[in-house]
């Protein structure tokens, strides 16, 4: 094992950038994906029939195909068709649409939306109807019931599962290295190409992920304990 390359500032810069990008990717697509998931879950429970079918179809397709295929579908498939639309190249969005990072966030957001949407659908459906009726009886509007009672109760029910989903999201981040986004795996690959060390950079990144997972699990566990009425999950 030869870790002397860690003294080289340019390799450390790769790793740092990969680390920061990983966190940004998780934060962005985790947040956007959660918002999408709430919409997808609600569409399947209270939405009109066409919307229900749309949500069901979206969930089935995303959960039935590999994330890697989705990533390439958006980056190579959709991404190469976009410049053909007149005006896209000149639009202010072009710098974003040209960036592989955007497609990573897009694919991950859609993925989180589908997987977490399924989790939330089950949780929303298992909130006792009496609580919702009670809220209505107190004169809360439909939106207020959702915001104050239904959604918080559902999150309370599925929080341990959500922890698992966050970890799954973190663990899918290395996929973006295949579309040339600088993440930890991409950094390890660059170090390998320049130093011809195969195992050391990969093992270091594996160690970083091990630590990140540990921090995330402990953090979410602390959250679960503080959240009233949640039984902390077994990890």
């Amino acid at each position: 094992m030869d870790f002397s390359w860690l003294a080289n500032p340019s390799y450390l810069a790769y790793l740092w950038q990969g680390f920061v990008n990983t966190l940004i990717l998780v934060a962005l697509s985790g947040t956007a994906g959660f918002v999408l998931a709430v919409g997808v879950a609600l569409a399947q429970i209270v939405g009109p029939r066409p919307l229900r079918w749309l949500a069901r179809g979206y969930t089935t397709v995303i959960r039935g195909t590999p994330l890697l295929v989705q990533l390439f579908f958006f980056y190579d498939g959709v991404g190469r068709l976009l410049p053909l639309i007149p005006g896209v190249r000149e639009s202010f969005l072009w710098p974003v649409l040209r960036d592989a990072f955007f497609y990573g966030v897009l694919a991950f957001t859609l993925s989180v939306g589908a997987y977490v949407g399924e989790v939330l659908r089950g949780a929303l459906a298992s909130v006792p109807v009496g609580e919702l009726s009670a809220a209505r009886a107190f004169g809360l509007s439909g939106v207020q019931v959702l915001w104050r009672i239904w959604l918080p109760r559902a999150i309370q029910i599925c929080l341990p599962t959500l922890t698992g989903e966050v970890i799954l999201l973190l663990k899918s981040v290395p996929l973006v290295s295949t579309i040339a986004v600088m993440d930890l795996l991409k950094a390890a690959n660059l170090v390998r190409d320049e130093t011809f060390l195969v195992y050391e950079p990969l093992l270091l990144v594996a160690g970083i992920y091990l630590a990140l997972t540990l921090v995330l699990t402990t953090g979410m566990r602390a959250l679960e304990v503080r959240f009233p009425g949640v039984k902390p999950g077994r990890v």
């Binding site: 970890i167 899918s172 290395p174 795996l185 195992y199 990969l202 992920y209 997972t213 540990l214």
Partner: peptide
Amino acid sequence: AVPELLLIILLYYA
């Protein structure tokens, strides 16, 4: 705890 892709590359080489 380690991403599948990373494991696959690592174990594939090894």
